[in-house]
């Protein structure tokens, strides 16, 4: 067996892979956007609603975290139509990945909110702020710096999980590499390049998150 890396072939397929990378970035970005918003809704719901809905929501989130993302992707895409919800691969994929990561981000937000000293809530009450104003203007801005490292981890995580969308035919990076492989019977170059592209995007992200956290703390005067 030979290990014959072909530079010419690698450069030939690179543009196609880079085009697919844009789809990967869109998938990760949109999925993360959904997860950030939904996660916040869940985190706030966990703190406010009555005992029964809170327990129910906690169990649902635990369920989402404890089952594989790929199963959830399959479920939404293939089981959805059976109950009358037919979604395109893109939409199904975004919902699955967004929902999955929202369950993790809800925990990150919750920990961030709980890290804000109780005295801040007492000040809010003494100044007669509404609960909504207390969250929006006082508590969440202070919770954010605590949440940023965790949020950054899951940003990298969601990015690395986008290849799973290839199982339902979303034309992201992994799907493009699979196509190249089945067309040319060469696998070494496409998969190696996929790995390198992911590495090239993941590494700076972690650094940017750290930088962002420092900037944020300074901006908030913390």
């Amino acid at each position: 067996m030979t290990f014959d890396w072909n530079w010419e072939f690698a450069f030939e397929i690179l543009p196609r892979l880079l085009r697919a990378t844009i789809n990967t970035l869109i998938a990760a970005g949109v999925g993360y956007g959904i997860a950030m918003i939904l996660g916040l809704v869940f985190a706030l719901a966990l703190r406010s609603s009555g005992r029964l809905p809170r327990t129910l929501l906690r169990e649902v989130l635990e369920f989402i975290r404890s089952t594989p993302l790929v199963v959830q992707i399959f479920f939404i895409f293939y089981v959805g139509p059976q109950v009358g919800i037919t979604l395109s691969p893109w939409v199904a994929g975004m919902i699955a990945i967004g929902l999955h990561y929202s369950a993790y981000l809800a925990e990150v937000y919750r920990a961030g909110i709980e890290a804000v000293p109780r005295g801040q809530w007492e000040s809010c009450r003494a100044l007669n702020l509404t609960t909504r104003d207390s969250y929006v203007r006082i508590i969440l801005p202070q919770a954010l710096p605590h949440a940023v490292p965790g949020m950054g981890n899951y940003l990298v995580g969601i990015f690395k999980d986008t290849p799973m969308l290839s199982v339902i035919g979303v034309t992201e990076l992994m799907q493009a590499a699979n196509s190249i492989g089945s067309e040319t019977y060469r696998f070494l170059e496409p998969y190696t390049l996929v790995g390198l592209i992911f590495l090239a995007l993941s590494l700076p992200t972690a650094g940017l998150v750290r930088l962002g956290e420092r900037r944020l703390r300074r901006k908030l005067g913390l």
Partner: peptide, 12 residues
């Protein structure tokens, strides 16, 4: 109105 032992100013 109330003032607290640990001030509880909004740090941001």
């Amino acid at each position: 109105g109330m003032c607290f032992q640990h001030f509880n100013l909004f740090p941001h």
